[in-house]
Simulated scan of single mutants.
Amino acid sequence: MMNSILMGLDAVLCILVVLAALEFLRAVHLFEHPVLSLSFYLVAIGAFGILMELARGVQPSSGSVLLHLGVVLYAWARRRHIFRDDWSWDGVDRRKVR
């Protein structure tokens, strides 16, 4: 019973980690923050890989669940800072006719 709860919780947290990492990568400029971007690419790829392992039935450890919870809480706490400081796209380039 407890294993099923941990697997479900870890799967949800992995999905949130992937979404948070991809949202951060959408907001930050790759060439202005290359190390930060690379780290979030690695986080997104790693969380997706763990999610695939969970889909195969591998049992997560409580440490991995806590790690994913920490990443999700960090991304949630820093969301305003990320969008205020790093996201400066106003959509003008997309509306230009070429």
Score class of each variant (00 low, 15 high):
Gly57Glu: 09
Gly57Thr: 09
Leu6Asn: 08
Glu23Asp: 07
Ile15Gln: 09
Leu16Thr: 10
Phe31Tyr: 12
Arg98Glu: 10
Leu51Asp: 06
Ser62Leu: 07
Arg26Trp: 15
Ile82Gln: 02
Val97Ser: 13
Phe40Ile: 02
Val65Thr: 06
Asp86Lys: 12
Ser37Phe: 09
Val18Asp: 04
His33Phe: 03
Ala11Ser: 09
Ser61Met: 05
Gly8Gln: 08
Phe83Cys: 13
Leu54Cys: 10
Trp76Glu: 02
Val17Ile: 11
Leu38Ala: 15
Gly49Met: 02
Glu23Ile: 06
Met52Trp: 09
Leu67Phe: 11
Arg98Ser: 09
Trp76Ile: 13
Gly8Cys: 05
Ile15Phe: 10
Arg84Val: 02
Trp89Cys: 03
Leu67Ala: 04
Val43Tyr: 01
Ile45Lys: 15
Phe24Asp: 03
Leu16Ser: 08
Trp89Pro: 01
Leu13Arg: 06
Leu16Arg: 06
Phe24Lys: 10
Leu22Thr: 08
Tyr74Thr: 04
Arg56Asn: 09
Ser62Met: 05
Leu6Ala: 08
Leu38Phe: 14
Gly70Asp: 00
Val92Pro: 03
Leu36Gly: 05
Leu30Thr: 12
Arg56Lys: 14
Ser4Arg: 14
Glu53Ser: 00
Arg26Gly: 05
Phe40Ser: 00
Cys14Tyr: 05
Trp89Val: 03
Leu13Cys: 00
Ile45Ser: 13
Ala20Asn: 04
Phe83Leu: 14
Asp93Leu: 06
Leu30Gly: 10
Ala55Cys: 12
Leu42Glu: 06
Phe83Asp: 14
Leu36His: 12
Arg95His: 01
Leu16Ala: 10
His33Asp: 12
Phe31Glu: 14
Glu53Ala: 02
Pro60Asn: 02
Ser4Phe: 15
Asn3Leu: 11
Asp93Ile: 10
Asp10Tyr: 11
Arg80Cys: 14
Ala47Lys: 03
Gln59Val: 10
Leu6Asp: 10
Asp93Thr: 14
Leu6His: 07
Asp10Leu: 14
Ala20Ser: 07
Trp87Glu: 12
Lys96Ile: 09
Ala20His: 03
Ser4Ile: 14
Gly91Arg: 12
Lys96Arg: 15
Ser61Gln: 05
Val43Asp: 00
Arg80Lys: 15
Val17Ala: 15
Ala47Pro: 05
Gly49Lys: 03
Val28Trp: 08
Leu69Glu: 06
Val17Lys: 12
Leu19Asn: 06
Ile50Arg: 11
Arg94Ile: 09
Ala55Gly: 05
Glu23Gly: 10
Gly57Val: 10
Ile5Ser: 09
Arg26Glu: 08
Val35Met: 07
